[in-house]
Amino acid sequence: MDAVAVPPTRRALLRTAFTAAVLAGTAAALAPVLRARRPRPVTAPAPLAEETYRGRHIAVRSHQVWIDGRPLHVMRRADGSYLSGINHFESFATPLELARAAVDELGTERLALAAPHHG
């Protein structure tokens, strides 16, 4: 599995939940130690939206977008609309529309693993 590509599929989320359950068991044994520290807030991940568009897997969580498991560089305009590393000169109302536009522009090409960085 790629170290950089982190496709947040449902399977991966389930795996995370399973790991958390196992850790919870371990935590029971360590409870006296942990109780001495400040309580850790449990935050649920934002809901994940997935779809297949023109044969490509799109995943959106909050403002983050993955295409076939690779992160799309997402940026915002002052009016709240979205731009990406693939679409710098046109903005879109939602991350999902942004992801579809990137797929349209990519054709059959995959995203780069590491995009160049901005200022």
């Binding site: 940026m75 915002r76 305009r77 002052a78 709240g80 160049p116 901005h118 200022g119």
Partner: peptide
Amino acid sequence: VRVHDRWFVPDRETKLRVGHM
């Protein structure tokens, strides 16, 4: 090519924008 990419700063950010927007 790198200079152009590096200075593309979208306007939701609070950084200096020189090349666009």
